[in-house]
């Protein structure tokens, strides 16, 4: 088992299993009697929106640790970091006293326009060189440990010279940040690009994994789309166990953002993840 050096270095211990505070849960989640260990928020939904979102956030923050997981940091993009956004994010991280925060290794903004998507970067040294100082800037400004997530991608971007795993490794090692390992993304990418998911996991700097995402996806004839619109499939559960056997217990999130049947169903998935975490710890 790999020592979780990044987490240890930053005094972070595994938090158990969380779910996302999505709009449809604003009234229900803070009142739930179900077991829940922590809550993830998309900071973009709380930085500039008042009213119900703030009330829900405050109520959740009273009960659970809250981890901000952004979609708009644009860590890989060509534009300068959005001052307003980073300032607001830093304030939000402090307000909920988050032990760490995260975003995706991607770009999401071009020419000052938000694309509201997580767009893949070419796997090149030039990108590594571009991203690393930006990560360091964000960490310096926010002042908490930061994780980058491996995004799903449907096409290799032009000019790539590194493998995906080396690309991820080079960024997180050179920037000295943590890795948010989205196990569903590994599965979806492996299927879409025809590689072996377990070999990919083995090639990652697992000692930097501080959080895991589990989610469902949607299978089309020629592509699998990372929709977060379904239950976690059996293959992803077994890949999750494969990862846990190598990392030890890791804070885990059930991501369910589309076609959510009910909050209870999401909490049921969280219970399954908690059982897998416990089972992993008992080995």
């Amino acid at each position: 088992m790999v020592a979780m050096t990044y987490a240890r270095r930053h005094g972070l211990s595994p938090l158990g299993v969380g779910i996302g505070l999505r709009r449809s849960f604003y009234e229900e989640l803070p009142r739930t009697h179900r077991t829940l260990d922590w809550v993830e928020i998309i900071p973009e939904n709380f930085l500039s929106l008042g009213g119900r979102s703030q009330r829900a956030l405050d109520a959740c923050a009273e009960r659970w640790p809250v981890l901000p997981h952004g979609v708009g940091l644009d860590i890989g993009g060509p534009d300068a970091l959005d001052e307003d956004y980073v300032t607001g994010l830093a304030a939000l991280v402090k307000r909920v006293d988050a032990p760490f925060f995260s975003d995706h290794l991607c770009y999401s903004r071009l020419g000052g326009v938000y694309l509201h998507d997580l767009l893949p970067l070419p796997f090149t040294e030039a990108v590594v060189e571009h991203v690393v100082p930006r990560v360091r800037e964000v960490v310096a400004r926010v002042g908490r440990p930061f994780l980058l997530e491996n995004p799903s991608y449907y096409a290799n971007m032009p000019g790539g010279t590194l493998s995906e795993a080396d690309f991820l490794r080079n960024v997180v090692e050179e920037a000295d940040c943590g890795l948010l390992l989205d196990v569903n993304n590994v599965y979806v990418n492996a299927r879409n690009h025809g590689y072996d998911a377990r070999a990919f996991v083995d090639a990652l700097p697992l000692e930097r994994v501080v959080q895991i995402h589990l989610a469902g996806h949607t299978t089309y004839p020629d592509v699998i789309i990372d929709t977060h619109g379904d239950r976690v499939c059996d293959d992803v559960w077994s890949l999750y166990r494969y990862v846990l056997a190598r990392t030890g217990p890791v804070s885990t999130l059930i991501e369910w953002d589309q076609d959510i049947p009910s909050m209870e169903a999401v909490l049921d998935e969280a219970d399954l993840a908690r059982a897998a975490l416990r089972e992993g710890a008992g080995r």
């Binding site: 694309l115 509201h116 998507d117 767009l119 096409a155 879409n192 020629d222 592509v223």
Partner: peptide, 23 residues
């Protein structure tokens, strides 16, 4: 703009559809 690029265009256009779809 990227003559060497071999990624299937049906995959690349997913991003165009997504970005437009979000608006």
């Amino acid at each position: 703009a990227h003559p060497e690029w071999r990624a299937p265009s049906t995959r690349v256009s997913i991003y165009g559809d997504f970005v437009r779809g979000h608006i």
